[in-house]
Design a protein around this nucleic acid. Sequence first.
DNA 1: ATGCCTTTCCCAGAAAGA
Length: 262
Amino acid sequence: MRIATWNVNSLRARLPRVEEWLAYAAPDVCCLQETKLADDRFPALAFEALGYSCAHHGQGQWNGVAILSRVGLDDVGVGFEAEGLPVDPYEGDARVLAATCGGVRVVSVYVPNGREVGSDFYERKLAWLARLRDWLDAAYRPGDELVVAGDFNVAPTDRDVWDPAAYAGATHVTEPERAALRALEAWGLTDAFRIVYPEVPGLFTYWDYRGGDFHQHRGMRIDLVLVTEPLARRVRWALVDRNARKGKQPSDHAPVIVDLDD
DNA sequence: ATGCCTTTCCCAGAAAGA
């Protein structure tokens, strides 16, 4: 099974690129983030024409997550659905969507940006990540076949940014944010990309549009595919498709692909 | 210290992204 995740930075602006990419990359399941669409504007017919069933959780001009699947799509869950958890610090945002695809529980997540370290947005990002961990613990078991994929807006280690010094004091690389990712790993999730490319630096999923950052290889790896142990054993191959960041009207993120042994 | 670039709102320029 081929699983992908891609922050498309507006599905309205990106639909031709997404259709083209689905046709050649042929993922079985694809998680999308930042669709920036209301549900009634989601182009389900375009994806159905390519053989995909879809679920979308949108809110309008911001956020928005989707799951596309050509191996079945059942038991769709919208947002954090669990009892007895603290209030979602981003209540009302469309940032979490779950579905069962080909026997695997798939969660598409769009972690809040955080803006400036120390800002209210940053504190709420940390609270949101803690809530994600608590929700996983309430809703799932580490022994489940579970994928949590999306834009985490955190670079797990210094290897995941082009120049750690360039990000000193910035969001996405701070210790509390990285600790929040490690808490997900402590619960039972593994960064599937690093199973395939342990320790390899210079592999990124996001490059700022400004200043020729993509062509200068100034990027960060913030889009992750996290898997539980039963799926980690099945990881066979992974790739960031940099071709999708090239050319006309690209997203500022590239898609990440992970292949699981069937 | 700020803009760089792109997208949204919708038609002017601010907000947001990371």
